[in-house]
Simulated assay, not measured.
Amino acid sequence: MPHRRSLLALAAALPGGALAQPARWSPDRPVRAIVPFAPGGTTDVVARVLAEAAAPSLGQPVIVENRPGGASGLVGVDAVAKAAPDGQTILIHSNAHVIAAALVAKLPYDPIGDFAGVAHLGRIPQVLVVNPRLEVRDLAGLVAKLRAEPGRHHFASAGIGSAVHVAGEVFRSVTGAEIEPVHYRGGGPAMQAVITGEAIFAVDPVASALGHIRGGSVRALCIAGPQRVASLPEVPTAAEAGLPAFRHEAWLVALAPARTPPAATAALQAAFGAGAQRAAPRLAELGVQPAPEIDTPARLMAWLQEELARGVALLRAAGIQPE
């Protein structure tokens, strides 16, 4: 037994040995978390909650930096793709990360190959909201109005390929409504367009719409998914409101530049996991739901590949071609 313990200790100590332990990693300065959208939208709101909650596990602050610009946040995403792969810079992004492939003919980066998985940060149901001065009181009333007034209205988008845009396209597809999107620079400006009456509706993630709904500046008509949301228990699902085919949810992920050391991505994943537990009440309030089946960086990247194929197919069906 002493001889066996000596061999095990030696094997663990040898670089590349069968029992070698991965080196622990921690950042030596604040971690930059780039959000490729303007402040105030869902990605920004949830990123800030999780960044603050993850910081204690890393021993350094996680600083959210907004870098809006380009289709699907292309400017910010490209900045992370080209950043040093040292774990000090990460991307916090939404569905738009994979949708970009359906919108831009020549992306300056590969949305899969130029990134390493860190963590799935959660799924977020979306809620359809209208201006409270609009005469419609429910989803059926909105659909009837749009069909009676074809081409007279538009819906607000948080940018081409954003979750807000894609959800609006799903609504248009399942209702047959003659309505076009108007694209704003992020979720915050899109919501303001509904509040001021510039747009007839938006399908916004619960995380960013909740405060506006509770404040009375917009009226919620339905949840675009199969289940009600705990923070909005009075709002029916689309199925309950008579439109079961209207389903779409937002999601958020954290990614690092490709070739980031596995020890760094593992440490970041663990930090965000611990942060999600610390911030669980706030995340639940925002409607963020965990995705426990996507529990490793490798599974995250495989899932993103599947989401890319699904998102491209959805926008192609909506008649959107890359430019």
Rank of each mutant, 00 (worst) to 15 (best):
Val312Cys: 02
Leu10Trp: 14
Pro132Asn: 12
Glu65Pro: 01
Val182Ala: 14
Pro261Phe: 02
Val98Cys: 09
Ala309Arg: 11
Ala270Trp: 01
Val64Gly: 08
Pro108Thr: 00
Val130Ala: 09
Glu169Phe: 08
Ile195Gly: 03
Gly87Pro: 00
Ala254Arg: 01
Leu268Gly: 00
Trp303Tyr: 15
Gly176Ala: 10
Glu169Pro: 08
Ala119Gln: 03
Val118Trp: 02
Gly151Leu: 04
Gly211Gln: 10
Arg5Gly: 01
Thr237Asp: 10
His154Tyr: 09
Arg310Lys: 14
Pro322Val: 09
Leu14Gly: 09
Leu10Met: 10
Ile34Thr: 08
Arg137Ile: 12
Glu323Phe: 12
Leu107Gln: 11
Ile294Cys: 06
Leu286Gly: 00
Glu306Leu: 15
Lys82Ala: 13
Val98Asn: 10
Pro262Gly: 03
Leu232Ser: 07
Asp110Gln: 12
Pro281Gly: 06
Gly151Cys: 02
Asn95Gln: 14
Pro281Met: 05
Ala96Gln: 13
Gly73Gln: 07
Ala163Ile: 04
Ala33Phe: 06
Thr43Asp: 11
Asp78Trp: 08
Glu180Leu: 12
Gly159Lys: 11
Arg278Val: 15
Ile200Asp: 10
Ala280Ile: 03
Glu240Asn: 02
Gln305Ala: 15
Ser217Gly: 02
Gly215Ile: 12
Asp295Ile: 13
Pro39Leu: 05
Val164His: 08
Gly211Arg: 10
Val136Ala: 09
Leu221Asn: 09
Arg299Trp: 07
Val98Arg: 13
Gly87Tyr: 00
Ala158Glu: 06
Leu314Glu: 12
Thr42Cys: 15
His248Ser: 13
Val62Lys: 06
Val143Ala: 05
